[in-house]
Design a protein around this nucleic acid. Structure first.
Lengths: 149, 149
DNA sequence: GCCGATAATTAGCCTGACCTAATTTTCTTT
DNA sequence: AAAGAAAATTAGGTCAGGCTAATTATCGGC
């Protein structure tokens, strides 16, 4: 039997790859460019690892890479980066809305964000929006939550 | 700068380890014992890989392993296995409740379940229960969901 | 009780994603 | 414009968690 161990989203992205694209996307969004040193910092990994991965991303057509010059997202890369950032944002709003401690929110979001399909994202977005608008419901749920602990 | 790349849940479980313990837990729950061949089947990996991992789980004190005899969970192992099964169950109920297609639910749940803290699990459980009881709300949300697509 | 079928294990590999150390290029300051 | 600092790259590892092929153990039917 061939390897299998399902790759989930067709093929375009191990968690690692998405982490890089998300950071590159965020950095470009915030500063207009993405330096290796900043990506490394944000992901808490070495610059060498970032260089390696960027080369890989280039061969996969997700970024354009030129030695010692910066890195730019291709249209494909931009899509992936933007998508993961959107999932990050929704998850964060949902969990933070319940008052979970920020560190926990961050860790859980980082872990979960790579595994959310378009359909699930829609459900979670819907839920998040409903809770943000329906303050009565939110209050009620928070009360129940407090009791559980 | 030191390695870091956070390990998230203190240390007791890479995603892989949790997958194994979940399967072992489920098999014991269902059939009273867990054979290597079944674990391999359920995880879609080779028997050899299962044997390797079981040995590792034994040295880490999560299962008791004896060559050619079955594998049994220790108390620690049982806890981890049960916890991950619980997360699996809640996530599945939540997503399936919205009518997402079963394959998607399964894939997303498999991906997300390893990254959910106790606190987040409580939030999701609460949400799931609320939606299961409050059929009006559920109907309303499903209607909105249908519109989005 | 023996034998073939099934299950489990071992041995030896491979790949992805990380690391450190050493090197090269670029930037900044004087 | 040259030197020192900072950033980027290369070279060469490590480790986890998969794999196949070969071997050994256990089990079920005759």
């Amino acid at each position: 039997m061939p390897p299998k161990r399902q790759e989930h989203t067709s093929h375009l992205g191990s968690p690692a790859i998405e982490d890089y694209l998300e950071q590159i996307h965020n950095l470009i969004d915030a500063k207009g460019y993405a330096r290796v040193v900043d990506i490394a910092q944000n992901l808490s990994i070495s610059q060498a690892s970032v260089t390696n991965m960027i080369q890989k991303l280039d061969t996969e057509g997700l970024v354009v890479y030129e030695r010692y010059r910066g890195v730019v997202l291709t249209e494909d890369g931009r899509k992936v980066g933007a998508a993961i950032a959107r999932r990050h944002e929704v998850l964060t709003r949902l969990l933070a809305g319940f008052g979970l401690d920020p560190k926990t929110v961050h860790e859980d979001v980082e872990g979960m964000e790579h595994h959310i399909s378009r359909q699930t994202l829609e459900v979670l977005t819907l839920l998040t929006e409903e809770l943000e608008n329906n303050t009565d419901l939110m209050r009620k749920l928070k009360r129940k939550l407090a009791q559980r602990s």
